[in-house]
Design a protein around this nucleic acid. Structure first.
Lengths: 161, 161
DNA sequence: ACATCTCCTGTTATGAGATAACATAACCTG
DNA sequence: CAGGTTATGTTATCTCATAACAGGAGATGT
């Protein structure tokens, strides 16, 4: 994984959340959990916080390393279980082609995700997927689709300059 | 990965290639390589053969185990390098959400792929992707797309019965 | 023929990503 | 507060993938 190693472009396009914006996002997540009888426990909240603070896809072991406030890492299952929960509730997505995770930037509870991934600077931009054509193809083939994801690799606007 | 462990349905919908059909497919691959100054060397040919013989997505270490004619496994880099070559030429695709590989069933040299993956029987059906809507969204965002892949998870027609 | 370049392969070792299994703790509900 | 359910802590291990380097095989020019 290079993730920007070869790129000189600043990746400030999507800064992570800080301060009030971060608190607000975490509070919104709390509310959504409360509404569905789910629990945003401490490790889950901490992993979501780490994702929201970042402006780039995070590797699981980056999250593990950054988990503890004083620099102590988490144990892998702690973070993987939190990620599983966050994905299940639609708070985070896994980007398969990067083995990395991002907070959901679009809406909640969706099992649909689409990403534009810059091979130069490592940014991953989530966009609103229009899967009409593909869902129609799936239906024609007799499939009942439970979740769907799309990953486009290329170069972002900044890196093309 | 379960890959059919929980499924009682026969997965004979897409049998692997045998005999003449297999030879023909390998010959076609030879021809396409010859036309582009690429070499379908013994290990590359062997890995392609293993993929074509199968009716299900193959894990890298399955290919490694099956590589040798007398049951001796290959070394991991041998198979990973062959897979890299096969992907580059469009003979195979990696299914990211399965960490597995399939032979390309559609056309050649394409860096576009779309799959319907059955969570019950483990089958992965490639279909002709219509990425018009998503490529338009990428262009609007300023991205230059080099490759694109879609993976839909769900239940196939046979497993829904 | 043979020098040389490039591409491919063989091999060893290790790095990166993810989960199994089991014990314990926290939360609900009656 | 008993008993079920869900979440966490911990250890160990498993799966997936690549770095690094030595050697071989094919092409090309002279």
């Amino acid at each position: 994984m290079n993730m920007g190693a070869e790129c000189h472009h600043a990746d400030g396009a999507h800064p992570g959340l800080r301060g009030h914006a971060l608190s607000h996002a975490l509070g919104a997540a709390e509310s959504r959990c409360a509404a569905t009888q789910e629990r945003l426990t401490a490790p889950r909240r901490r992993v979501l916080e780490l994702l929201l603070e970042s402006n780039a896809p995070q590797k699981a072991y980056d999250l593990i390393a950054a988990f503890g406030a004083q620099g102590e890492p988490a144990k892998p299952p702690t973070v993987y279980r939190a990620l599983e929960f966050l994905e299940r509730l639609g708070f985070a997505h896994r980007i398969e082609s990067l083995n990395a995770y991002v907070p959901c930037r679009i809406d909640g509870q969706s099992h649909r995700a689409a990403f534009l991934i810059c091979d130069c600077c490592g940014a991953a931009e989530e966009f609103e997927p229009d899967f009409t054509a593909q869902l129609a193809a799936a239906r024609t083939a007799g499939y009942e689709v439970a979740s769907i994801t799309l990953e486009a690799r290329g170069r972002c606007a900044a890196c093309r300059t």
